[in-house]
Structure formats: C-alpha cells, structure tokens
Amino acid sequence: MKILVPVKRAIDYNVKVKVKADQSNVDLANVKMSINPFCEIAVEEAIRLKEAGIATEIVIVSIGPAVCVEQIRTALALGGDRGIHIATDLDLDSLQIAKLLHTVVVKESPDLVILGKQAIDSDNNQTGQMLAALSNMGQGTFASKVVVEENMVAVTREIDGGLQTVKLSLPAIVTTDLRLNEPRYASLPNIMKAKRKPVETIAADSLSVALASSVKLIKVMSPAQRVGGAKVADVNELVAKLRTEAKVIA
C-alpha cells in the first residue's frame, strides 16, 4: 500500500512565539523551525506500517516556500521514500492546503493519507477533515491506534469522553494524536542518504486551485498577561487565602 504523509514546517514547539510590535503578525524572523510535532507522529506511523510489511511506499508532501524542502528531507531521513514540494510563498488557509493536497491525492492515489491533527502554529485542526471531504473518504481523526486490515483501517480515536474506534474503507484519511507513537530520531547515515532521495517541486499556481483566502488577518496581539508569582508559606495560609481573599472555596 502507498501512504501519503503531508508535513508542515512550523515553529519548533520549544519556542515561545512573540508578537510583532505593529501587531501585523507573530515574529518568525530567526526563529527555529521544525516539522510540526503531529506531522512527525504521522511520518513515524507510516514508517512503522512500512516496517511491518504493510506499506510499500511513503510519499512526503509539504506546501510552502523553498525552505520547506528542509522538512521534506528530514521526513525522508526518518524513512520516507520520496518527496513532493508544492511551492508557494503565499500564506494559505487550511481549505487551500486541503485543495492542493487533494490534487496530490488524485495524482498519487494513496491507500492511506496520514496527517497531524493540528499544527501548533495556527492550531486550526482542519486540514485532514477537509481533505477527507474533498476526496470523499472516511476519516479517523485524533488517532491513538491504527490497525490496517484487508481493504479497511481500524482507527482508535481520542475523544473527550474516552476512546472510540471506527472502521474506514480504504482509501482513507487518518489524523494523529499524541499517543499514537513516539517518533524516532534520524541517524546521521540516513540524513546523508535522504539527500539523494527524489524530491519533485510543483508550483502551487500550476495546479488549478484558487489560492486566495477568504479570511483576512486583521491583527495579532499578545494575550493578556496574568499577574502571578505570589507564594504562600503553608497549607493553612493557602486555604485561608482561597476562602477569604479569592473566595473560590467555601
């Protein structure tokens, strides 16, 4: 089976983002960028399916400026077979991303598409579901377990009330949650080998997808800061303050 794994270049999860002084956006100049952590989990799951003899080919795709090829190379070093870079300098919304990915789905006919459930920059949690709708496929979102059966995939999902398992006919869309697996690190020899793996570049505006977004960013502000930092000496002082000062317990 062929697996398609879209990956997003995003701010590294250890970095605390700052807002630009003119409130036009966040400031990403000289900030460390990585593969979005949920996309990394998607790559890892595809590799495990290949190691288990279920998947035969893993295609990595990323959409964005030329630097996204770094993230494609990282995913290839982890175990992807080849890459597709859809090149654009535009800041696209999830719907446009899903439409571009849909063109790749049509061309590549993967049996499974595994995506991260959300990107830690926009926190949108939309692309996989939108791609599923556009491709008329079933979706297993927020997956903590993926079991491929004949022509089917069983996906255990993390939901607010606990866990839910659904069965999807293939081809299908899966989005990853944190507990699906623990991603590996790329070894140095594999990083070297990944440099020779094929990466095809396609211009986004050659794909007959309307790239204009209907959502305009008006401004970006810093969140209200909490004034914390006060300490209490012991449990008695804590309970007294919660009762009489904060008045949050009886």
């Binding site: 919304d93 999830s94 719907l95 899903a98 926190d123 949108n124 949690n125 939309q126 692309t127 996989g128 579901q129 939108m130 791609l131 599923a132 709708a133 556009l134 979706q139 979102t141 927020f142 999902r157 993390e158 939901i159 607010d160 977004s213 209907s214 959502v215």
Partner: peptide
C-alpha cells in the same frame, strides 16, 4: 470546539467550499 465539533465541522466547511474559523 470539542472532539465532536472539531471532527465534523471542517468537513462541513470543505463541502460548502468555505473556510472554517476554529476555536
């Protein structure tokens, strides 16, 4: 923006060819 809403709403948006604004 529960796991129910997050699950089906982007599908609605895509079916109607509009953006979703999350959360």
């Amino acid at each position: 923006a529960t796991t129910t809403g997050k699950n089906f709403m982007p599908r609605v948006a895509a079916l109607n060819d509009v953006a979703q604004i999350s959360d």
